[in-house]
Amino acid sequence: MTHSPLAIEATGLVKSYGETRAVDGVDLAVRRGSVYGVLGPNGAGKTTTIRMLATLIRPDAGSARVMGHDIVDEADAVRAAVSLTGQLASVDEDLTGRENLTLLGRLLGLKRPAAKARAAELLDAFGLAEAAGRLVKHYSGGMRRRLDIAASIVVTPELMFLDEPTTGLDPRSRNQVWEIIRAMVAEGTTILLCTQYLEEADQLADGIAVIDHGRVIAEGTPGQLKASVGSGALHVRLLHPDQRPEAEQVLGRELGAVVLEPDPAALSVVCSDADRGAVAIAELARSGVRIADFSLGQSSLDEVFLALTGRPAEAVPGEPDRIEEEHAS
């Protein structure tokens, strides 16, 4: 076993599907014991990257070492060190929660009694003891995700891949999953977390790679990313939501691309210069837009994404529920 301080070192990973370059030269360096966020909108190439690193597909070009092992030449050693929680719930819907965990325990080499005991312990820890004997297809989205994560730690992995663990969950279930992820981090598990939720990466990750169209377009800590697009943002809340288009126009002209916030009366824009911010506010007032309040503060990752790509990240929390849709079809 090599003792690189890195859990993942990827250089120039490429994967094409026909004309689509799903992943187009991705480099990653993930330290052991950290949570690394791969942040990007739907179709950016997150899942394809994870599938290469977890040895499910071979890269067309480039190479990577995961926990010190080459993903192509030492795929078995990689598999023995990692676990995967896929974007589609990676549990068997036609079995019960208990059967799922026991099955995985057996496949990972536990004897039958040990596999059963381990399943019971995990079901307890993840609040699924009561639902243990129920078929997974009758689980709620949150319960399914928790089982999915439990399934990934039947044998404690050195590195865990989490592909959009909270997509499609309601806010309460999302918080529960976040708490579980935090507990795993506290225990020292290295995690590669793919997400389209900027808030999720901000909350959980130590380092973030922003990817778009199969390429890493920015990398750093959440703080560095924010700093790289300017130290702050101007947040404005209007008295009348119907004046937002007008406000967007004025701020866009004065400061650059504007982010429309979930609050229909709020908008924000990257702005590192207080004087220019003040001018923009004055300009707003002059054009007849009524302002409820405004502040100049740190930029959020939403603004980071906008500044990097020139367009907003497509997905925001609370969007239609993709996981549930996939299960319903």
Binding site: A80, L108, G109, L110, K111, A114, R118, E121, L122, A125, F126, A150, I153, V154, V155, T156, A183, M184, E187, T189
Partner: peptide, 8 residues
Amino acid sequence: ALSSTPRP
């Protein structure tokens, strides 16, 4: 739960 199982 994370710490309790040695790899078989």
